[in-house]
């Protein structure tokens, strides 16, 4: 978004020129996306109208949009969507609050790493579904069980990434910190944390992906009777293909939205990473 660049007096005679950046440049990618989606849904509609596939499994795009619209209009979708979204965001927040400090600690302290890493790695690789029966046993079918599975899904990738970030800090940067008088806390604050920030963000990104899976598992298998997972389940039982597809679209929009939000955050938080590429 460099519309104009001031040309300061540079001592080594490097020439900085002002460049024009088209105001439409940023709308170009939006335009392409719009066209792309239009074509996608048109083909969907045409294929469905041709009835190559049983409409029980493959409804028309227009029916899907109608189901989406009606669902919002008659209040069947919104409570479930807001239930899922709220649950998910709370779960993600809890995961970040636990995962980031613990991960940083594991990266910074060998002892903490030795003690915690067997559990962390076991939990990172264990399929989340395996925990459902136990969680139902402990917490029943309530909301706390759904929340717990989200946290258990999201917290470990966040932890592991934060740990990796601290461990890969360039030693010469830490040395520069020491040479130029930084105390231990200052080294953490001014060198290790900023260096780790991109890792934290990519950890949260993975946490989002895993957390969404956890959320759906909890809602599908937990039998709590709410959330987008419940909508999916019920639409399936009722052979309501348009509603099924509408829910899937909602899920896709939700996850893409979250990932985009993180990307935006990443560019804010770590602008030094690739200014030229943006």
């Amino acid at each position: 978004m460099t519309e104009t660049i001031q040309s300061p007096a540079r001592t080594d005679g490097q020439q900085i020129e002002t460049i024009e950046v088209s105001k439409f440049a940023r709308f170009k990618s939006v335009g392409i996306t719009v066209v792309n989606l239009t074509i996608f849904f048109t083909i969907w509609e045409l294929v469905a109208r041709a009835e190559v596939i049983n409409s029980l499994f493959f409804p028309r795009a227009t029916d899907m949009f109608a189901a989406l619209f009606n669902g919002f209009a008659d209040g069947t979708i919104w409570p479930q969507l807001s239930h899922s979204l709220t649950n998910f965001l709370i779960g993600l927040a809890i995961s970040a609050v636990i995962g980031i400090p613990v991960g940083l600690l594991m990266g910074a302290s060998k002892v903490a790493d030795l003690i915690l890493s067997p559990y962390v790695w076991a939990m990172t690789s264990l399929p989340r579904v395996a925990l459902i029966p136990l969680l139902i046993l402990i917490m029943g079918f309530g909301n706390s069980m759904q929340l717990t599975i989200i946290v258990l899904s999201a917290v470990f990738p966040i932890m592991v990434n934060c740990m990796a970030g601290v461990k890969t800090v360039e030693p010469s940067l830490v040395r520069a910190g020491v040479v130029f008088g930084a105390s231990r806390p200052q080294i953490y604050l001014k060198v290790i944390l900023p260096y780790t920030l991109p890792f934290v963000i990519s950890g949260v990104n993975q946490g989002i992906a895993r957390g969404l899976v956890g959320m759906l598992i909890g809602e599908l298998l937990g039998g709590g009777g709410n959330g987008l997972g419940f909508l999916l389940d019920r639409a399936g039982e009722q052979f309501d293909a348009p509603m099924l597809y509408a829910t899937l679209i909602l899920l896709a929009v939700m996850s893409v939205g979250l990932v985009q939000a993180m990307r935006w955050l990443e560019q804010r938080a770590a602008p030094w990473r690739d200014i030229s590429r943006a």
Binding site: E170, S172, L173, R175, A176, V179, F180, K190, V191, P194, Y195, L197, A270, P271, W272, R273
Partner: peptide, 13 residues
């Protein structure tokens, strides 16, 4: 004692 590092060691952010 201040140091100029062989690999610069500047903070990229």
């Amino acid at each position: 004692r201040a140091m100029v590092f062989q690999d610069y060691a500047l903070l990229p952010w």
